[in-house]
Design a protein around this nucleic acid. Structure first.
Lengths: 209, 209
DNA sequence: GTTTTTGCACTGACCAGTCAGTTCAAAAAG
DNA sequence: CTTTTTGAACTGACTGGTCAGTGCAAAAAC
């Protein structure tokens, strides 16, 4: 049983296998959806035997759930980090929001398949991993809501804004713009996309009254 | 042997069956996804035999494609109508955008399942109905882009805005805010949600510079 | 006005194929 | 030696699609 020497990452052998399975699963499920993706396909794409999948994960859906948790954790960390960095650098709260938008775009362009898959599952009901999804969603949205709340507290934003709705709208703005960017005009630069969204957020589109 | 005579409802018997199948399919697929939804389930929910599904549609995916076409047509008409009505009433282009946001919200609250399903499929690749989806997406986005373009032409909006990206961002804003509204705080009124989004569009959130 | 025919719309049992998950002996890796 | 992986065979439930047959109301025939 050939094995490709020591995995570059440094983790245990098992962890490396898990990672390969995540990567295989995420692209396949993003393309085809969870149900249409077979365990055989995942194993093949990852270059392991089917038995290995079941040695590492209890079931197909457990693999998927852990994938979701893993991915959203990356996103949440990245958003939080962006906000904190801005804070340290003496930026305003609005600057922090802007930095989070950029961080969101960076994340989506780095992990487009994960994003796709997440969006496709988020608003479904009656699925096994529904609760996992809710928890994980709340973690990510909370980061944005926190910054919005601070911005209101500091008087930077009007206290008339609706925090959860505004957060959701911002997520949607970034998500859809980024997915469209990736799918339909991938030649555009990240800065391009970011500046279009900044302009929208900062009210240089709709005219003010 | 003439068939034509119209049964009570108004449409032919066949059309009524098709409608029932659409309704059954849209909720099931929104909940579970395309592949996880069986033709047996669709038939049962619609109260017809499985054979009837295949009598009316060539295949499961054809049923789904026609469903997509049908739904997006409703949306597109509604958006266009909102924009035209505003125009007739002497509103500005920005007013038209605002009216379209409202029309979007109304549509989503009326057909949440369809919206869910559409979002879940839109960015997938390698699926049979990919091309249908693209066509239908373009129809809807074009309506928004047209109004944005007119607003720029009339000087109402800066000509520095990126039309396709701004349109995508607006779609995302409405989509995600509305889905979150439906899923997580359904008690909110449409006006509530609409005013939060208006505020965002019209730059009363991010502070101006 | 009664009987017969026609064909659309629908039915549901059935089939051939697919897939998640299991099993396990053996081999590789460490 | 222990942990991990392999790989192939197997199971049993499930699924998309098929097809011979039914019901029925309008049309045709008488």
């Amino acid at each position: 049983m050939e094995r490709s020497s020591t995995p570059p990452g440094g983790g245990s052998r098992r962890e490396a296998t898990r990672q390969k399975l995540y990567e295989a699963a995420v692209t396949l499920i993003a393309e085809q959806g969870f149900s249409a993706t077979t365990v055989d396909e995942i194993a093949e794409r990852a270059g392991v035997a089917k038995g290995t999948v079941y040695y590492n994960f209890a079931s197909k859906s457990v693999l998927f759930e852990e994938l979701l948790r893993h991915g959203v954790e990356l996103l949440t960390d990245s958003l939080r980090e962006a906000a904190e960095r801005t804070e340290r650098d003496g930026g305003t709260k609005v600057d922090a929001l802007d930095a989070m938008i950029r961080a969101g775009l960076v994340f989506i362009s780095r992990y487009p398949a994960f994003t796709q898959l997440y969006v496709a599952e988020l608003w479904r009901t009656n699925r096994a991993w529904q609760s996992t999804l809710m928890v994980v969603r709340q973690q990510a949205v909370a980061v944005i809501e926190d910054v919005l709340r601070e911005a209101v507290a500091s008087g930077e934003l009007s206290d008339e804004i609706d925090i959860p709705l505004t957060a959701a709208a911002m997520v949607g703005m970034v998500l859809v713009a980024a997915l469209d960017w990736q799918s339909f005009q991938p030649e555009r630069s990240l800065d391009d996309v970011h500046s279009a969204l900044s302009r929208l957020l900062q009210g240089r589109v709709g005219g003010n009254r």
